[in-house]
C-alpha cells in the first residue's frame, strides 16, 4: 500500500448524497481482472453529461473529492476505490461513508475523511466560489485545512499508523502466525470443510 502523510490539491464538489458504488464504477467495468485502468469508468453515466462537475475544465487535475453523505453505499467492489485512485483522487471527504467502501479505501491508501456536514458545505462553498482553492488533508495532524477552515478529523490510531507507514496488512498478520495455528488447533470437529479431509 502507498504511504499517506499529507496531501494538498484542488477539489471537486460532488453535491449528491447516497453516491453508490454502482455510480462510482458501473458493473460492466468489474469484468476486468486488474487493479488499474478504471479511470474512464469513474462516474461513467454522469460523465456523459457535459455539465457534470468532473467534466468542467476548472476541475481537471483536482485530487480531493468532497462528497455528500452516505458516500460509497452498496456493493463491496474495491474497484470503486481503484477507479477513484486511477483517476487521480488522493482523498475523499464526506460526512458519512458506507463501511465496506471506507475499509477498502483505507486498505489502498485512499484517505477517506469524515467531517461534519457543515464543514463539507463550507468546503463546497469555498471551491465553488474559487476552483483554484486548495485543500490540505493532513494525516499526521489529523486535520483538513483550507482558506478559513481548520477541521480536525478522527481516525483510528492503528489505521493511521498503517497508512502513514504504507504497511501491508497481510505481512502484519503473518507475524502472528503462531496465534492463528494455536486457534486452529481448538476448532471443533463439527465445523464444515469444503474438501474431504486429506
Amino acid at each position: 500500500m502507498e504511504k499517506f502523510t499529507t496531501h494538498t490539491g484542488r477539489a471537486v464538489p460532488l453535491r449528491r448524497s447516497n453516491v453508490d458504488t454502482d455510480q462510482i464504477i458501473p458493473a460492466h467495468w468489474l469484468k476486468k481482472v486488474t487493479r488499474s485502468g478504471f479511470e474512464d469508468g469513474l462516474f461513467e453515466a454522469w460523465r456523459k453529461d457535459e455539465e457534470f462537475v468532473l467534466n468542467r475544465p476548472e476541475r481537471q487535475g483536482a485530487s480531493v473529492l468532497v462528497a455528500g453523505p452516505e458516500f460509497g453505499t452498496g456493493s463491496s467492489r474495491e474497484h470503486a476505490v481503484w477507479a477513484l485512485q486511477n483517476y487521480g483522487f488522493q482523498a475523499v471527504v464526506s460526512s458519512r461513508f458506507a463501511d465496506i467502501f471506507r475499509g477498502n479505501s483505507l486498505k489502498n491508501g485512499l484517505l477517506t475523511v469524515v467531517l461534519p456536514q457543515e464543514t463539507v458545505e463550507r468546503l463546497w462553498e469555498l471551491t465553488e466560489a474559487d476552483p483554484t482553492v486548495e485543500i490540505t488533508v493532513d494525516l499526521e495532524a489529523r486535520e483538513v485545512r483550507a482558506e478559513g477552515v481548520t477541521a480536525p478529523f478522527e481516525l483510528d490510531d492503528n489505521v493511521r499508523w498503517r497508512l502513514l507507514n504504507g504497511l501491508d496488512d497481510i505481512s502484519i498478520t503473518l507475524q502472528n502466525e503462531a496465534d492463528v495455528s494455536a486457534f486452529e488447533a481448538t476448532r471443533p470437529s463439527f465445523k464444515p470443510r469444503t474438501l474431504p479431509a486429506a
Partner: peptide, 21 residues
Amino acid sequence: AFGIGTSQVEHVLATQTLPLA
C-alpha cells in the same frame, strides 16, 4: 457474515483471518 473488498479477500486467502474494527 459480511461482505469484504478484494484486499480482504487476499488477506483471508493468505491467513484465514481478518483484522476487524
